[in-house]
Write a protein that binds this DNA or RNA. Structure first.
Length: 451
DNA sequence: TCTGGGGTCCTAGGACCC
DNA sequence: TCTGGGGTCCTAGGACCC
């Protein structure tokens, strides 16, 4: 049982023999039922009880504990449809609390960075990270993976499962199998020989491969009778190119055959598009409310923009009308969108709000009920105003300082203390979040109390 | 009454240029 | 006088991911 950082590292680097067999080895570390685990961390009485977490607006179920899964609560199913089942079995329900999840996610990722080294960790999503284990001898991989798992749990309280294999796609496949059979694997599975990989491929339905979604799974089954990953792995790269999205498909086939074709990604890639979109708490038909919402989303998107030191040259706005409601089938409604190309790229909230709100005038139709709106920033370039721009009047640079100040205050308060007037103050359109737990780790007033 | 939000990569095809 | 071929850039849209 690893207890100190030093013992772990001494242990890890102890025997530095050459890796035989595969040239690369990746681990995927995946937090189990992440959002539910976060909620449980501060509510020990919910251990072994069914728990679910809802999406924004309390719309869908986006995380389920094992117990909730066992009861037959559907993933991504609408909350209202699962409600009877949830009531009947006394399932604990929470609105999503992204402050809490984000903070715990950071702790998990930091733990991995400390154990394995920052340069070998790629954060893939809020609850998953790839770890490059290529430098370690094959015979040590299992032990290293188990060490990672135990240490993350000790240091953060979050349980993870880990799959290890020569490629990312195979690591994901191993991870899935480890979770399928927790008792036997204790949430760690290493595929380090051809035989193990073959067995793993055979047990994996084609639709459960990372990179094969609904459409492809259906096509593969209906047209070529390909049901499992082993069958797909035997198809040619050319087949992948023709039928699974071009070079994406080629990579997929290669990865299934143990040839690493998806590299570790640089952590600091700047995004090429930034979006903020939300469903409304209830349908809205008033243009002022829509403008308020769009202004608020624009502020949020602009913050994200500044955080990565970019400026946007295109801003687009879309609204979604409420569809006809045919009781059971979910009608997505019609989306209308328009964009403006800005005269110069900018990261200033006020310069972005103006054109965004103007776009609403073009999109809005009186008498229509809207259920959703969004703002997208694209054409992103490095923000010239960061270092001061000689060719702009002084006031421009003051704007940058003002933006930084607002961002800093809002970040430290986490609740939009400072807003632009266009964002409104009543916010009838804002989302429902009736069941949110306290932000234990990011708000002083909501710290966990020990009795 | 009630179905999330935020992204990525890739291809095809049209416009335009020489 | 009857119409090539190659290149680039852009957009729309399809697929995927968590």
């Amino acid at each position: 049982m690893p207890t100190t950082l030093q013992s772990i590292q001494t242990d890890l680097f102890a025997h530095h023999t050459l890796n035989t067999g595969y040239r690369s080895m990746y681990a995927i570390v995946d937090c189990n039922n992440f959002y539910c685990s976060c909620e449980r961390l501060f509510k020990p009485h919910l251990d072994n009880k069914p728990v679910v977490v809802l999406s924004n607006n309390d719309g869908c179920i986006i995380s389920r504990s094992d117990e909730a899964k066992a009861l037959g609560v559907d993933m991504a199913g609408p909350y209202f449809m699962a409600k009877p089942l949830i009531k009947k079995h006394d399932v604990a329900v929470f609105s999503s609390n992204y402050n809490l999840y984000g903070d715990l996610s950071m702790r998990v990722m930091d733990t991995l960075r400390v154990i394995i080294g920052e340069e070998n960790v790629e954060v893939y999503s809020v609850d998953e990270a790839f770890v490059d284990l290529s430098i370690f001898p094959t015979q040590d991989l299992e032990r290293i993976a188990r060490d990672m798992r135990e240490t993350v749990e000790q240091w953060t309280g979050i349980k993870v499962s880990i799959g290890v294999a020569p490629t990312k796609v195979l690591a994901k496949l191993a991870n899935r199998l480890s979770k399928k059979n927790k008792k036997e694997t204790d949430c760690v599975m290493v595929l380090d020989t051809e035989e193990k990989i073959r067995a793993g491929l055979e047990k994996t339905p084609v639709g459960d491969i990372w990179g094969v979604g609904h459409q492809y799974a259906k096509k593969l089954k209906e047209q070529w009778f390909i049901d499992d990953a082993l069958q797909l792995s035997k198809m040619s790269e050319e087949f992948g190119r023709m039928h699974l999205g071009g070079v994406v498909g080629v990579r997929l086939i290669r990865e299934l055959n143990g040839i690493a074709s998806k590299d570790m990604q640089d952590e600091l890639v700047t995004k090429k598009m930034i979006a903020t979109t939300r469903m409304f708490g209830s349908p809205v038909d008033n243009i002022h409310d829509i403008k308020e919402a769009v202004a608020t989303y624009t502020s949020r998107a602009a913050e994200k923009l500044r955080r990565q030191y970019s400026a946007a040259s295109i801003i687009s706005v879309f609204v979604v009308a409420k569809g006809e409601n045919h009781n059971v089938t979910f009608n997505r409604g019609i989306t209308h969108s328009r964009y403006t190309i800005l005269p110069t790229a900018t990261a200033f909230t006020n310069e972005l709000i103006k054109p965004a709100v103007a776009l609403v005038d073009h999109l809005y139709k009186k008498g229509t009920q809207y259920k959703k709106a969004g703002v997208m920033l694209s054409g992103l370039v490095p923000d010239a105003s960061i270092q001061g721009n000689l060719f702009l009047p002084e006031t421009k640079n003051n704007g940058r300082l003002l933006m930084d100040m607002i961002d800093n205050i809002n970040f430290s308060q986490r609740d939009d203390v400072l807003k632009f007037a266009a964002s409104g103050t009543t916010r009838d359109w804002k989302m429902r979040q009736e069941l949110r737990s306290p932000r234990y780790t990011t708000r002083w007033e909501e710290l966990y109390e020990v009795k």
